[in-house]
Design a protein around this nucleic acid. Structure first.
Lengths: 200, 200
DNA sequence: ATTACATGAATGAATGACCATTCATGTTTT
DNA sequence: AAAACATGAATGGTCATTCATTCATGTAAT
């Protein structure tokens, strides 16, 4: 069994354990057990507990960002781009529910190292939405009075909350397609029957 | 100095400390110091650390829910109701940034007691949005094909993410009015210039 | 091809720091 | 002078991390 293999095993065990117990409640011995290695072995591959969490972010979120950017580069219609972002994000979250939970919960922690990671790498991911909106404004599809920085947060926040509840399985589970359809229809045309009726 | 007073002092000290350090990293002695009481005194008012966090939720979130419901009951237009929910939520988050951070971060923890609290009490708060949307559908203002349970998550998630970034002060800080205007305009009429142009 | 030696990955018991919680003692109120 | 309240040092349990030891595999010497 190769070293790289063990590294990967630890990462995915950690993802699962962090999702189940949360970063602070998770014990190194839990991760070791899940990965079927000795406690000490973990320290041959990672410096400490935070390093494991950051590696999870780095490697797994990295894949998502790459994938999203690749898919988007092949599409020019800003409406389709928003659709791609949404469905790709939801699919990624559905594919690995443990990773989803770690991203949704642990990535918010106040701790310095996590904050830094979030502020740098993760912001870029959310920033993709702002890029799409600006592009749409340039091509005359999106309203110029929409502030991309606000809209990107609204769009991402909506997706994030929907997929969070998804994992918590609190409510009816809609399919990716249903969610994307509703999300796009809300964001593109709003929830009012006839926008012309909107007072002043 | 009355007992009730000390209880309150500990709650608000805890809110501040939890916001700054996060629940798990916060020490009881930090809270005691911030509240200017002895460590042991805290245990005269709360059973344990989790009890403090839950009390913060109970008491502070309780106030927000009450306030929102009161304000909403005086308004009948579903569009105005959505506006009231948004502005009231944002104002509450702005009023006490420590509380906001605790709600946005600590309320998401995987821990059983927190999960339960969120699933019961907090869901009701978010549920208000679904009620508004259903009301709007009945009165013919909102599109009947919109799923209230999805839309409520989208609306709340958008608000939540915007106010979260607000506190993290990562980006330009928009005012409550600006955000409400943009949010309502996005959710009511969408971000497209002319919805009629939307392909099929 | 058997034996002797070397390597470093893997182990898991032991260490030590940290902190929630308790409680013997002091202080204030009635 | 009780009762009620408050204190903060001491306790005990919980892990993250370390490191002496084991063991499987490889290389060299006979």
């Amino acid at each position: 069994m190769k070293a790289e293999n063990k590294h990967t095993k630890i990462i995915s065990a950690a993802t699962k354990v962090f999702a189940k117990k949360g970063f602070f409640t998770a014990r190194i011995s839990d991760i070791a057990k899940e990965a079927k290695v000795a406690d000490g072995t973990i320290y041959l591959y990672f410096n400490n507990k935070y390093d494991i969490l950051l590696s999870v972010f780095e490697e797994e979120v990295g894949k998502i960002v790459e994938n999203t950017e690749k898919l988007l580069s092949a599409e020019y219609d800003p409406r389709k781009q928003l659709e791609i972002f949404a469905s790709q994000h939801l699919m990624a979250m559905k594919k690995n529910r443990y990773l989803a939970e770690v991203i949704q919960i642990e990535l918010r922690q106040t701790h310095k190292v996590i904050k830094e990671y979030r502020d740098n790498k993760f912001s870029k991911y959310v920033g993709i939405v702002a890029v799409i909106i600006k592009h749409g404004q340039k091509t005359g599809i999106y309203r110029p009075d929409i502030k991309p920085d606000l809209a990107k947060r609204a769009f991402f926040g909506a997706l994030d909350e929907i997929s969070r509840v998804w994992n918590a399985s609190l409510e009816t589970n809609y399919s990716v397609e249903e969610i994307v359809t509703q999300m796009l229809s809300i964001f593109l045309t709003g929830i009012q029957i006839d926008p012309a009726n909107l007072p002043e």
